[in-house]
Design a protein around this nucleic acid. Structure first.
Lengths: 83, 83
DNA sequence: CGTCAATATGCGCGTTCGCGAATATTTATT
DNA sequence: AATAAATATTCGCGAACGCGCATATTGACG
């Protein structure tokens, strides 16, 4: 399932969901992306000042990618996902 | 047209493309997101240490959103887009 | 409950952000 | 070629990063 993100928090939540789906710990992901577990923690918490590099490294570590696209109207289901 | 991004540089290039599509200058976008023109410049250049907040603010200013999804096989067309 | 794994938080350090402000430098446009 | 607009780059500053290292705190499970 793809994840829509419009805020740092939603980005973090998306990363976390995919990481858990792959049964990886923050430490596991941290090793893949050469970052500390603490850094992964902040990224998933949606810390707004997290560096873009950390996001992209995490995506690579989880074999994910970003799509940038015009905002869509949120469906009822998509709204559910935000919570 | 949606943009696929796997690196900070590709993220920046995507932002730039959408900004130009909307006939906005870096200064225009900067005002919308309460950031300096210089900051927009670095974001579009793909500076890896750019803050996540800057990315999300820029997307909001351009009425865009992110999708996080599993990496896809790149089609010939998508590969073109990377250059 | 107790125990261990997983996650969150803290400190000091070096680095780099984004800021205001200003200035190159590049890119139209005529 | 000349001018103006757009973009890139620099300075000093305060703030926050990610780091190693260490320690709470929380969560899962027997």
């Amino acid at each position: 399932m793809d994840t829509i993100a419009r805020t740092p928090q939603q980005v973090g939540a998306g990363i976390r969901r995919f990481r858990r789906q792959k049964k990886l710990t923050q430490r596991d992901l941290g090793e893949k992306m050469h970052a500390r577990q603490a850094t992964v923690s902040k990224l998933e918490a949606g810390e707004p000042a997290t560096q873009l590099r950390m996001l992209m490294d995490a995506l690579a570590g989880l074999d994910l990618e970003l799509v940038i696209r015009p905002r869509t109207k949120l469906t009822a289901e998509a709204i559910e996902d935000l919570f």
